[in-house]
Amino acid sequence: MAKEATKSDLSKYLDPKTLTKIGNLDVKARLIVEGYISGLHKSPYHGFSVEFAEHREYTPGDDLKHLDWKVLGKTDRLYIKQYEEETNLRSYILVDTSESMKYASPGNVSKLEYACYIAASLTYMLIRQQDSVGMVFFDNTIKKFIPASSSPAHLRLCLHELAQLAPEQRTDVGTIFHDLAERIKRKGLVVILSDLFDDPEKILFGLQHFRHKRHEVILFQLLDDFEVRFPFEDMTLFEGYEGWEQLLCDPRALRKGYLEEYESFTEKMQRGCRNNKIDYVPVNTKNPLDVVLSAYLSNRLNSKFK
């Protein structure tokens, strides 16, 4: 289906609202990745190994340097040479499944759902290029640790686990990061998907641990649009997740203070991450997913050409 689809058709699947209409996470992941890829001139997604594996029909966006000119001369058809990639990248995707991730403003997808889309599409993309992917679900404890692997079966496992997620506990990002830094032995890429509702000092301390273990870290902070803008007008009773006490207030009166808190947090995180060479990407879950994927890929390219 996707192959026949035009470029613009595919890119619509980058919009999280459209994705909610599709039931299967597997399909979603594929659509996201292919939608995204189809928008690029140069497909960045190929193996790094030199050992030839098979031919594949050219699709728009593939790099022309991998075109098999011989086959073109013989058959007048466009084939791409594919190589058996040697798995040299281990990625771990860390998904925050705490209760606060459940939040979704009206008409929007929840942060957790958004996180799942990202996790699924990254997994899909990585496994397709023979990289091994591991997955960790956490709240205040590590709920699930799926070791890294690159087999297609692993992809299915990961997607299945993502589909099963049900958030319930508080976040304790800082502590979890320490644990995980210890558990992930080989150095690799650590992708963190979380709303980071914790003390920034603790978070940064945990992230430093990853860096200390020589992991590359991409930190996606997922926030709902309402959490960024705080657009409430009427008297509202706010009921907190994760055991927070409820609060009845006039939101107009508190907006200024709230936004200050938010900005101060973001600034602290940005400064901390820059100092630790961590990619910190704040993500508004209202926005299409390509922002996230681009951030990921640019990180990969940077690390490659370093």
Binding site: F232, W244, F265
Partner: peptide, 19 residues
Amino acid sequence: YKRTWWAAMHWLWASMKKS
């Protein structure tokens, strides 16, 4: 009043305590 679930309570409470 309206009633809503809210995740970023720590910022809201911080703002509340300040003002």
